[in-house]
Amino acid sequence: MQKIGREDIQIIAKHSNWSNEGVSKALEDHVYHKAKDWHQFLKWLFLGLGISFAVAGVIFFFAYNWDDLHKFVKLGIIGFLTIACVLGALLTKTKPPIKKMLVTAASILVGVLLAVFGQVYQTGANAYELFLNWTFFIALWVVIVHFAPLWTVFVTLVNVTIVLYSEQVAHGWSGVFLFTLLFWVNTIILVVFMLVGKWRESLYLPTWFTHLLALAAITCATLGNVNGIFDAVDSSYYLLTMTTLLVYAAGIWYGLSHKSPFYLSIIAFSLIVISSAYLIRLSDDAGMFLIISLYIITTITLVIWALIKLHKKWNP
């Protein structure tokens, strides 16, 4: 029998008198996992469970003894682990993804090392300095190894550094300014990665990563705009609005030209949220709530209708 899917079986079963046994057998043959899949699955499951439990056990063991360890031992252990990971990545003959994961582990250990250093010597530094230093120290590794999960860690660190800086040092920054800055940083990183991917095939990063970046950037833009609608204290709000419109227009163009419904969906959703916030700002009497309710239903329905039409056009 040719390849048929679960939906095909469902449709046929609905419109015929296919017997229970027949349907079950068809599902077993074509849809359910076979022995080979089970072997793979169980192997990976037990390997993953085994490694995570064992590592957790080791971590808990050190946590138990932590206070009693001499400070050289504490720093020494983490330093040793970091070096071991990096040397493992450089010198052993394993597959590239495993090497890259070792460097990712080493990068995270750098942060742990900095934290332990701060705790042991009670430097009294701001948390933002820890994240800033962490970001700088692993920057070279991240660029050279060019591994999507490691880049995710790096971009997260950049964002956290900026947020902590605004909280602990730059007390004059308004909420809108912070969101504008985050939005710009994430968007610039996103655009750089897209261009780099186009320029050199080998430097292409997986879609989940660019989608995650886009999601982060648009969340910052949405929150910033909503914040600004209710509480715009300085000129950064107008800057944010202009750049948001420009970036969203570019995003929609990109989504349409590259047949990617993802960008269109999140930009549309963000626009609906921002415009609803604006409507609430205009007035909060009964009539406005009704208008907002109908507005949301109408706009989302239109967006879904457009998405379905585009899907049909792109997949004839």
Binding site: L42, L47, G50, F53, A54, F60, Y64
Partner: peptide
């Protein structure tokens, strides 16, 4: 339990899973 007991439990479970693997 104390962290020590938890760590031993986790380690033993981890080793058992690796045996399965």
């Amino acid at each position: 339990f104390t962290l020590l007991t938890k760590s031993i439990i986790l380690l033993c479970s981890g080793v058992a899973f690796l045996f399965f693997y």
